[in-house]
């Protein structure tokens, strides 16, 4: 039982980490606490439904289309909602992201109906059984893809010129402008990346489960994940995501499925009380 729960927590936690990473990229770049991150994951899942089930595109093409649509969505959100509000209070921008998540949900329900959709997948769906431990191939694929994505984006930020400029922008907005960085472009890119990561998370959540607007609740686990891991910390988001997945699975298996929210947010509360900058956050800048 323990190994089984550990496995599920790891697999789901990896996806949460991916969505949380997207959240952290946006937060670091634009200081926007994006309550629509869960809704962006839902969008990714529905983009996949549209490309795979409705348009019937071949899987690789469908994934490319879904990634492009997610990126474009992030850019559009930044251009139309976030950039015009730059300089306004954090509360105003938070309200905008909350409103955005509600609008996204409503629009999806209008277009696709309230009934959840099933995302067919060409990925392997069997199960590896080792003793009592059952490891669904789909969960393994999701976890592996999440880690590849996280590593790829980590490398992107560390080793590329654009990644360097994005880190500079995140580090100090005005200094980046003074140094000739096209800060708006970097922010737009951050939103595109944030949206794409949420979208990939949504794609896997949709494949493992069911595509419905309720996936937003799972996507929003990115919020406790980043606060637990440390708001300003990219590795913190990943670790936070993993932890949230573990806490969720362990509490539901060992206490009760109803206890997951209490366990996750109780842990969040402990972090805020005793280490408000998060597990891997920066004590100077990362205080919530």
């Amino acid at each position: 039982m323990f190994a089984q729960v550990l496995f599920s927590g790891f697999a789901l936690g990896s996806i949460y980490g991916l969505v949380a990473l997207g959240f952290a990229v946006v937060f670091k770049a634009t200081q926007v606490f994006n309550f629509a991150q869960g809704a962006l994951a839902v969008c990714g899942a529905y983009f996949a439904v549209t490309a795979i089930s409705i348009l019937g595109l071949p899987f690789p093409l469908a994934i490319l289309a879904m990634l492009a649509a997610s990126a474009l969505l992030g850019v559009i959100i930044h251009m139309t909602l976030i950039q015009p509000l730059s300089g306004r209070s954090m509360l105003a921008i938070i309200m905008v992201t909350i409103a955005l998540s509600i609008v996204i949900r409503a629009v999806i329900e209008i277009i696709y109906g309230p009934q959840g959709r099933v995302l067919s997948t060409p990925l392997p769906t069997g199960v590896f059984i080792v003793g009592d431990l059952r490891m669904p191939k789909l969960h393994l694929t999701a976890a592996a893809t999440s880690w590849v994505c996280m590593a790829a984006f980590g490398a992107f930020f560390r080793f590329t010129r654009v990644g360097l400029l994005m880190r500079a922008t995140a580090d100090r907005h005005e200094a980046a402008m003074a140094a000739g960085v096209n800060v708006n472009l970097m922010n737009r890119l951050a939103w595109a990346i944030g949206s794409v990561l949420a979208g990939i998370g949504g794609l896997f959540l949709g494949q493992l489960q069911i595509v419905s607007t309720e996936l937003e609740t799972i996507g929003l686990l990115a919020l406790p994940a980043v606060v637990i891991g440390g708001l300003q910390s990219i590795p913190g988001a990943i670790v936070g995501g993993l932890l949230v997945g573990m806490i969720e699975q362990f509490s539901s298996s060992y206490i009760s499925p109803k206890s997951t929210d209490i366990a996750i947010y109780g842990f969040l509360l402990l972090i805020l009380l005793f280490r408000p900058w998060g597990l891997l956050g920066d004590q100077e800048t990362g205080r919530v």
């Binding site: 039982m1 089984q4 789901l12 059952r134 959540l205 298996s253 997951t260």
Partner: peptide, 17 residues
Amino acid sequence: TMKIAAVDVTPQVQQIL
């Protein structure tokens, strides 16, 4: 049991397992 809007039933399936 699960919530009506549940999208993840891993815990319930763990229990079945």
